[in-house]
Computed example of a mutant assay.
Amino acid sequence: MKIHFKSSTIIAGLFILGCTSGCSVKNKLNGINVEVKNNLDFNRKEIVSIPSGKLLDLLKNTSEKNVRVKIQGTNDYLRTQWIDYDNDGKSDELLFETDIKANSVVNYSIVSDTVKVPESKAITYSRFVPERIDDYAWENNKVAFRAYGPTAQQLVEENKEGGTLSSGIDIWLKKVDYSIIDSWYKKNVVSPGYYHIEHGEGYDPYHVGASRGTGGTGIWENGSLYVAKNYITYKTIATGPLRTVFELTYAPWSNYGVQETKRISLDLNSNFSKFEINLRSDKKIPNYTLGITLHDKKGEVNINKANGWFRHWEAIDNSFVGEGIVVNPEVVSSAFANDSKVPDQSNLLIVTNPKAKLTYYAGFSWTGSRQISDVTQWDEMLSKQAKIIANPLTVSVK
């Protein structure tokens, strides 16, 4: 008996096809066997997700903490992570790392064992940051981001110093693979502005203001972009070695009374945060628009509507940053660079058909991190991300 489903990550686009009840399979001698297939012509280092319902037989005789994943036929144990998405005390899925060659298949075994799995300083992480007003920040071993909360908004509206009024997404340029959020914020308390200066690990020279930053949203209507203010609530769902997940909610905004919840996740090794948007509104909205700031409009824009990726490439200080959005091309109605004379209102805009739910990916790469060296490599990374979303890894539980 063989059961097939699709699974992938922020890099791979995480599309899971659920199975019917009773579909878990038990192999008493060897545990549960999993086949992972890469149908694309390039190597993929991603996170595989196994719904916990497929592991019921194994979990009858062992606890989650003793579940291990290894490459079949070896003792090469992989890092894993359980996630409880609805916070009901029961894990919903098991994650593990896979590193798979182009057009290849790798077989894994999920077993009960107490062997210690090697740890790594490369992790995913997110948290609310009260020491910097009320930021919410997230990162992995490649990139870091932050969003701004209600107190930061209030300070601006009361004409007080230190606030930020923006629903745009900020990016932090990191060049190390270990976590920097706690360290940079702690040092910023002692020395305000610390993380805006390069100290050897990277820094934050990126200006968001009222722009969309990298992946902020809005409604485009009659030549204007209408946007939410800062997030009003947050909920941390998961942090761990392989994936961090959280939600941000926004007060109703625009004349349409849009109520917006963003579930944001970031996987290890990915340059792209995954945004899963849930929308409600008092009346039908004309569109839902994604954006990337164009800053001083000296950068380069590339719109690849056919394949669903859109990018900006710009010089920042003595290096270059590529920002990008990847989305299913079928939902995109138009995309263009909006040139405005108003500060922070020039954005690359991707206008999508209005839906109650929308998923897209927003991320970046920085030449200072040596992940890429030029715009051609950034375009290649975006092209691969689009292919990954359209062709998630095939996972078979046997």
Rank of each mutant, 00 (worst) to 15 (best):
T352K: 04
E260V: 01
Y360A: 01
T359M: 06
Y234D: 13
N304R: 02
G240R: 07
N328T: 06
N318P: 02
N255Y: 10
I350M: 06
T352C: 15
F320H: 14
P241V: 15
D317C: 00
Y234E: 14
E300Q: 12
V351D: 10
K283R: 15
N353V: 12
T239E: 15
G291H: 11
L266P: 04
A251R: 11
N269F: 09
T293P: 13
V326F: 01
Y360N: 07
E314L: 06
K297Y: 07
F246D: 08
D344T: 05
Y288F: 15
G368D: 09
P252T: 09
N328E: 10
T249V: 08
W309H: 15
A251Y: 13
V301W: 01
K229Y: 07
R243V: 13
G363I: 01
I292N: 05
S365T: 10
E323C: 14
I277K: 03
L358W: 01
V321Q: 04
P343S: 03
L349V: 08
R263M: 12
V227M: 14
N255F: 01
K357E: 15
T261M: 12
A315R: 15
I277P: 10
I292Q: 09
E247Y: 02
N347E: 08
G308I: 08
N278P: 00
F336I: 01
I264P: 01
T359N: 04
